[in-house]
């Protein structure tokens, strides 16, 4: 009972801060005499719900979100497959490391956004350049964490597997790969937030749909309400993605949690 009571209190405190901030915002917006009308939170939330069923540009906010999500998913999955394969093999096979690690180390400090001009030159302003940027943003954490996971495999487990008769490839697939999974998951979290961020930048630079576009389009017509409503959508989807990933991680890593 007491435990539940504590939990409720934590939620109430959080909600309290939230309400205070929103009220301050509401009061400030209502009493402001600035020339650009600053929208009230009520107006923003109202607009957000309005956009759920009314089109802005060619789509409702659902449509824009789906566009953004589809770009993230494609770039992200591509980065996941290639990053995990490269990271794990680099971490386990010395010759793969010798071949690729120097190039990777040289390229990885370059921020994904620095690739925008080149990417547009190479792939045009369509979807491909967005996939490419999102790919770059997610590829680095995927590779790095898979690499770290493979390097840090418990040597004693390798010895145990070999003494139980596992061949070299069985050691890689049955020991190295699964023991790197927790590390890959923490890479996946970073990759996801990187991808989500980079998607916005890519859409703001050049697109005609997506949440990034929604915000930039709002700027084009001086519609602050639309911009903030777009930001609200980013926040909500980003929050859901991160938590979905955490849930998936908990599901996949039962063995890594203290018996839960």
């Amino acid at each position: 009972m007491r435990h539940n009571y504590g939990k409720i209190r934590v939620v109430l405190y959080g909600a309290g801060t939230f309400l205070v901030l929103l009220s301050l915002w509401q009061i400030a917006a209502m009493t402001s005499n600035s020339e650009i009308g600053f929208p009230t939170p009520v107006a923003v939330i109202g607009r957000f719900f309005h956009m759920l069923s009314n089109k802005v540009g060619s789509y409702t906010i659902w449509g824009h979100t789906l566009w953004s999500l589809s770009r993230v998913v494609i770039g992200y999955l591509l980065a996941c497959v290639l990053g995990v394969v490269l990271g794990l093999t680099m971490g386990w096979f010395p010759y793969v490391k010798a071949l690729f690690k120097p190039v990777f180390d040289l390229l990885r400090p370059i921020a994904p956004l620095a690739w925008i001009p080149l990417a547009i030159l190479w792939f045009g302003i369509g979807e491909k350049y967005k996939y490419f940027l999102i790919f770059i943003a997610a590829f680095v954490p995927f590779t790095l964490n898979s690499y770290a996971g493979a390097v840090r495999v418990d040597r004693q487990l390798i010895g145990a597997a070999r003494m139980l008769g596992a061949s070299h490839s069985q050691v890689f697939f049955r020991i190295v790969v699964p023991s790197a999974v927790p590390s890959i998951f923490s890479g996946a979290q970073v990759a996801l937030s990187n991808a989500w961020m980079t998607m916005l930048a890519a859409e703001m630079v050049r697109s005609s749909e997506g949440i990034g576009w929604l915000i930039i389009a709002g700027q084009g017509i001086n519609d602050m309400t639309q911009m903030i409503a777009g930001m609200l959508a980013i926040g909500i989807v980003g929050f859901l993605l991160a938590n979905g990933m955490r849930l998936l991680e908990r599901r996949c890593l039962v063995w890594n949690n203290q018996g839960k």
Partner: peptide, 29 residues
């Protein structure tokens, strides 16, 4: 070699495998 099996002080069990999968590992590989 599998003909000389080691029982480790630190157990060295494969943490991502169930008891069944740990015990059957040598037979599976």
């Amino acid at each position: 070699a599998p003909s000389r099996a080691v029982v480790y002080q630190t157990m060295a069990l494969f943490p991502w495998m169930t008891v069944w999968d740990n015990v059957s590992f040598s037979q599976k590989v």
